[in-house]
Nucleic acid binder design. Structure first.
Lengths: 185, 185
DNA sequence: CTTGTTTATGCAACTCGTTGCATAGAAGGA
DNA sequence: TCCTTCTATGCAACGAGTTGCATAAACAAG
């Protein structure tokens, strides 16, 4: 049930509507936790009826009205409790790795295109992360001294950057292996 | 539905029972795809009734009888089709990262223990992967020339090793950051 | 001789996540 | 004017994954 907690953290960083949260889950939060707007609206509704968060109807001009959510006292308590519980390291789900091992029973060379496509996507994602890092943390427009929240956001972003770099290097290893198997069977 | 395909790949590598598959999902396959025995038995039953796999009742002495599954022609076709479909890069789910950003609204120093615990677990996992690599691929008892299947298993394992090394280095970065925030608030 | 462990299989209930669809106001372009 | 896009919210159905429980044979330890 970490979606609940991811939403609480995001609302603590800045209150917002379901729509805005969905936007954030495509950006910064989405780097380490994904969710669709359906999930978000459902969870917001439940957390509101459980008193974890408060709603405020915000009328708007030139666009539909929205409901702005913010974390209630109870929500803060729930989050604090969760923060003190131990969690297990993530269980891995890597579909591409299944395909790579499966390729032994098909044509390994046929996977090259697909792996190249993943390599391209991860390269784009890395560039995106690095741009965000320069914008918010290391560039000339970034604040000189970071507060606790910014320091923690930065270290999480560094994790995303490290992950993408590692993945790109591994995909190059995979490509070299597939090409070697193709030329010398 | 990649569990179906992960099971097909595993059964192609070597036929086996649901119980044996569950064991493999705690070992090599579990490095990139996890599943409990409940999931496995359910999927095996469905794939068998759909004609993707064949069953053979194997009576045993000194332990209960088992059902040994192997991939049928239809299963091979289904797998081949899936191998030629493009897939999207995995959506990330990193609970610890949620906690790290959440720590800004609690006590960052309280997370140090938890991060150390994760560091320890990943170090163990890395040692386990490296032992497996020496045993099967690079050590003196490993085959001198690897076939296609072994080459692909090795490159997937190298991915797991790279992932653990990257994670360990990042967790050290996280620890340094948390300690810095604790001493100079 | 009872208790616990390993091998072996499975049901039922539940929660979480995905997909498709629906609505609706305002803005902007063809 | 119509069609698409963006903001904004939501229902319904389905599929995937988790948790708890149950059974049963064989063996090993106390």
């Amino acid at each position: 049930m970490a979606l609940d907690h991811a939403i609480l953290v995001s609302l603590l960083e800045k209150p917002g509507s379901g729509y805005e949260l969905a936007r954030r889950f495509e950006r910064s939060i989405g780097y380490f936790w994904t969710a669709t707007h359906q999930q978000i609206y459902r969870v917001l509704k439940r957390m509101e009826s459980d008193g974890w968060i408060d709603v405020r109807e915000v009328p708007q001009q030139s666009r539909p009205d929205k409901k702005e959510y913010s974390v209630a006292a109870l929500g803060r308590t729930v989050l604090a409790e969760w923060l003190h519980e131990p969690i297990e390291p993530e269980s891995v789900r890597h579909e591409l790795a299944v395909k790579i091992r499966g390729a032994a029973f098909d044509d390994p060379a046929a996977l090259i295109r697909e792996v190249e496509r993943h390599h391209h996507k991860h390269t784009e994602r890395l560039a995106h992360y690095l741009a965000g890092e320069r914008r918010d943390f290391t560039g000339p427009d970034a604040p000189e001294a970071l507060d606790t929240g910014e320091e923690l956001q930065h270290v999480v972003l560094r994790g995303g950057i490290a992950y993408e770099r590692m993945t790109i290097a591994w995909l190059e290893d995979v490509l070299a292996t597939l090409r070697r198997l193709g030329t010398a069977p």
